[in-house]
Design a protein around this nucleic acid. Structure first.
Length: 889
RNA sequence: GGGAGAUUAGCUCAGUUGGUUCAGAGCACCUGCCUUACAAGCAGGGGGUCAUAGGUUCGAGCCCUAUAUCUCCCACCA
């Protein structure tokens, strides 16, 4: 059979992907094994795979595949998030392209469009995940708006309302005038260096005096909503005016001049116009001074009749700003315009300038409900990796603010509040309309049929559904398990949940530590008194080589599917992980994937070599038995390190150890040592040991490179039971024979010296050399191995030094290779001189320590002994070198 | 403004309680090789005052103090 010298991933990957899928290899159902559960951070249902997903899911797959090999019942649950704002924005945009305005549609019609769209384009990302090799249980694919999930979200709302955690309140919120929705703080973005804006200095007349006051404002269009002017109480310039009244320009409404510490004397003019409806701080000042609220701006950003100037009603706020400025200028009230840098908040989704707005919204009280979640991380019941995020987490949790969970959208879970009157408290909260109707009827004392019900128009914040993800995907809130009286889940009744929950590790980005991670922890304790996961692995953002965030507009984000096509899924996975320490951002460079692909190829060729050998019943060479014995110890030693790295979630470190073990130790050393001469057969013993070693190597490599390992596995194994590398056992450790590892190290060092001499003196590899050895009591080398890889004719022990020879020292042993024709004595002398100089310097440092009485008296014995040994070694080396140098002269 | 973290080779990063030749790895770079698994390769090599200045210690990349620079998070001035 001819195997190509270059590994072609495409066909192999398709083959195994279909095989895994058809055989449901990653299907998980509860059994006797311990569980290892991972829930995917659900990507937006409308999303397409980008580099961030690539990294995120590769890490998860590595953990899950290894756990599966280690004998856990690994269950990785895939799914998607309905992502209310993001998806609704996309649907609205699409409809607009078709000439349909959202405002022309009824809620039902809009949702129909949205679901059609979701069915058509949604979940593309999941099929893309398959290409990457993600070993998820496809049968468990969940969606945050599945019927059962929807019900869970509503049930939790009702429950939290009952428990008193949910309330409805008037709050200053961030308002997106274009999407006409409230935004959470986290959905408001600020440009990095601020934006240039104008600060307008506007003169206000003071009632009953000729004096005027000048205020500075960014937002002259809100002047008509002014209810006061505030100054700092200690500001001498304005003290005498406190208690007087000013007149709002253009409309001449009387407003008080008040004193408030919030005002900074040094900013602007030291006078602040107070507009409670349009600024959060002004709102608070207004509350403190019991001032009225005049809301002059509509939901869509246009002005309303409260501005008292009919000509502005219906115009957009920015349009009005221009007109107001012009008018103030004409009336001589505009003192000056000043440029300054400010940080303007914009909607993450629509880029519109965010409008602070007073509004009735639904909130979750966070303080009490989050206490256990804070504790859990503090006490390491939940471990964050890297641990530095503990600080960030604590800081946020200790200063947690109430969570505004209502969004003025249609796509999402509709808030289960039903209004039956116009009073502020004329509403009930219930899981169904029927139930609401009965409750309302009770409140009103009338027949349920007569109640006029109106359900709240708003939907819930996306995170108010995804925070239930680790519970809801296992049906935790189902009727059978959820106790409405206690508001707890009866875990023992739910076989799935009690088996799979808590999950093992959550892999996600630090940017959503609060949005999502913290809230899942809160929900876990609220409903199960248990954490949702044991570990949280926080990986960084994928950036480009120059450290810029990857974005569509910069065009600096490669398409992961293209990378997979070019470098193979295995190569791309390795590329992603090569430079990805936990918690640090990853500076992605396509050459890393190239390195990954080259690694695939290296393994492929190692396999080609081994599979091409003819076996014969011949004696096993000494170099081969040594190689096998050494490699087994080496493997066991490195496996231990790999396992430790995994335990600490240092995935890229685990990969690097694996990479070097395979490339350097296995390919460069082991295979070269056992390789039979050209067209010679290999002995049976060595071949079978090598196949076993190869299997173990595939085992540790499998989590990183599932496809190529699966492919090679098929050729290597005759064992019908373990036909799949994906289901193979994670290699178990074994004995580490340190003395054989040391022997190998010494031998390798000698081989390298011989190779250097060859290279520096143009001695062809084909020319067999003779190596003389003098004084071998120090480190033992393995003669057969050195002979083979050094290209030696023979090794001869000698009691005397050999003249006219290249020399080197390894340990306390001297080695000689007699000169051939092309010899550069001067270079040889210089080499020895350099080594002597270095060793003398080294000895000096050691002696400095040993002559220091305080060192000798206070350092531990082991450290001192070591210094003594260093001294002896150095002295003997100096003697040899001096000797040689004189011989060369 | 508040908080957290970082600064080690050209680049990205390790360096676990201060003590093995501790100054490391990968990539990049340089030199020589198309040697029979692999040029997507092989062999060899150069490269760092561990940000700066002090301090503690027999001994500091590691501990302490100050300074500089950078990153992130939170809050935010009309």
């Amino acid at each position: 059979m001819e195997i190509p010298s270059k590994y072609d991933p495409t066909a192999v990957e398709d083959k195994w992907n279909s095989f895994w899928a058809e055989n449901e290899l990653f299907r998980s159902t509860p059994d006797d094994r311990p569980s290892y559960t991972v829930v995917i951070p659900p990507p937006n249902v409308t999303g397409v795979l980008h580099m961030g997903h690539m990294l995120n899911n590769t890490i998860q797959d590595v953990c899950v595949r290894r756990a599966r090999q280690m004998g856990y019942n690994a269950c990785w649950v895939p799914g998607t998030d309905h992502a209310s704002i993001a998806t609704e924005a996309k649907v609205v945009q699409l409809l607009r392209q078709q000439g349909i305005k959202k405002s022309d549609l009824s809620r039902e019609d809009f949702l129909k469009h949205a679901f059609e769209w979701k069915d058509k384009y949604g979940g593309i990302i999941l099929s893309q995940l398959r290409k990457l090799g993600a070993s998820v249980d496809w049968k468990r694919t969940a969606f945050t708006m599945d019927d059962a999930y929807y019900q869970a979200v509503i049930r939790v709302f009702v429950d939290l309302h009952k428990k008193g955690y949910i309330y409805r309140g008037l709050r200053m919120i961030n308002w997106d005038c274009e999407a006409k929705t409230a935004l959470s703080n986290e959905e408001v973005i600020y440009q990095e260096n601020g934006e240039t804006s104008l600060l307008y200095h506007v003169r206000y007349a003071i009632e009953g005096s000729g004096e005027t006051l000048t205020i500075a404002t960014q937002r002259p269009e809100t002047i008509m909503g002014d209810v006061a002017i505030a100054v700092n109480p200690s500001d001498e310039r304005y003290k005498h005016l406190i208690g007087h009244f000013a007149l709002v320009p253009m409309i001449d409404r009387r407003i008080p001049i008040i004193a408030d510490d919030y005002v900074e004397k040094d900013f602007g003019t030291g006078c602040l116009k107070v507009t409670p409806a349009h600024d959060p701080n002004d709102y608070e000042i207004g509350q403190r001074h019991k001032l009225p609220v005049i809301d002059t701006i509509n939901d869509d950003g246009t002005l309303n009749e409260k501005c008292e100037l009919p000509e502005y009603v219906g115009l957009d706020r920015f349009e009005v700003r221009k007109k107001v400025v012009a008018r103030l200028k004409t009336e001589g009230l505009l003192v000056k315009e000043e440029e300054f840098i400010t940080r303007i908040g914009r909607s993450e989704r629509t880029q519109t300038v965010v409008e602070p707005k007073l509004s009735l919204q639904w909130f979750i009280k966070m303080k009490d409900i989050s206490q256990q979640a804070l504790q859990a991380v503090e006490s390491d019941e939940i471990k964050l990796h890297p641990a530095k995020f503990k600080n960030t987490y604590r800081h946020w949790m200790e200063n947690v603010r109430d969570w505004c969970i209502s969004r003025q959208l249609w796509w999402g879970h509709r808030i289960p509040a039903y209004y039956f009157g116009s009073g502020e408290n004329d509403f009930v909260v219930a899981e169904s309309e029927t139930e609401a109707r009965h409750q309302a009827a009770d409140r009103l004392g009338i027949n349920p049929a007569e109640v006029q019900l109106r359900q709240d128009e708003d939907v819930l914040d996306t995170w108010a559904s995804s925070w239930l993800w680790p519970i809801a995907v296992f049906d935790g809130f189902n009727d059978d398990y959820f106790d409405k009286k206690t508001g707890k889940i009866n875990l023992s009744a739910n076989k799935e949940l009690s088996y799979y929950y808590p999950t093992k590790v959550l892999v996600t980005a630090p940017e959503i530590l609060f949005f999502w991670v913290a809230r899942m922890i809160i929900a876990g304790y609220e409903y199960l008194d248990m954490p949702p996961f044991a570990d949280v692995y926080l990986h960084g953002i994928v950036r480009d080589k120059q450290g810029r965030k990857m974005s569509k507009s910069l065009g600096n984000s490669p398409d992961p599917l293209d990378l997979i096509k070019t470098y193979g899924a295995d190569g791309t996975r390795v590329g992603m992980l090569l430079s990805s320490p936990a918690g640090n951002d990853l500076l992605f460079d396509e050459s890393l994937c190239e390195q990954g692909r080259n690694f695939s190829n290296k393994i492929w060729n190692a396999f080609r070599l081994v599979s091409g050998w003819e076996a014969a019943n011949i004696e096993q060479p000494a170099s081969a038995s040594f190689a096998i014995e050494w490699f087994e110890s080496r493997f066991n030693q490195q496996l231990q390190l790999i396992n430790e790295s995994y335990d600490k979630y240092r995935i890229s470190e685990a990969l690097m150890i694996t990479y070097k073990l395979i490339w350097d130790d296995f390919c460069s050393w082991y295979l070269e040592l056992i390789k039979p001469a050209y067209q010679q057969p290999i002995d049976l013993k060595t071949l079978s040991a090598t196949k076993k070693i190869f299997e173990r190597i595939l085992g540790i490599l499998h989590p990183f490179m599932p496809f190529i390992t699966e492919e090679i596995w098929q050729y290597l194994t005759d064992d019908q039971v373990k036909t799949c590398c994906s289901l193979s056992q994670w290699p178990t450790g074994g004995m580490v024979n340190q003395s054989i590892i040391d022997q190998f190290e010494s031998s390798a060092q000698v081989i390298a010296e011989i190779r250097t001499i060859r290279l520096q003196n143009n001695l062809p590899n084909k020319e067999k050399l003779t190596l003389f050895r003098r004084g071998s009591e120090g480190q033992a080398i393995h003669e057969a191995a050195v002979q083979k890889l050094g290209g030696l004719e023979q090794i001869i022990d000698t009691a005397d030094k050999v003249d006219n020879a290249y020399t080197f020292i390894s340990g306390r042993t001297e080695f000689f290779i007699p000169f051939g024709q092309n010899v550069d004595i001067e270079a040889e002398r210089q080499k020895l001189q350099d080594e002597l100089t270095y060793t003398l310097g080294f000895l000096e440092l050691v002696m400095k320590k040993l002559n220091n009485e305080k060192f000798v008296s206070s350092a531990p014995a082991a450290v001192i002994d070591n210094e003594r040994k260093k001294k002896e070694d150095a002295e003997s080396k100096i003697a040899i070198l001096t000797d040689k140098l004189s011989a060369l002269k």
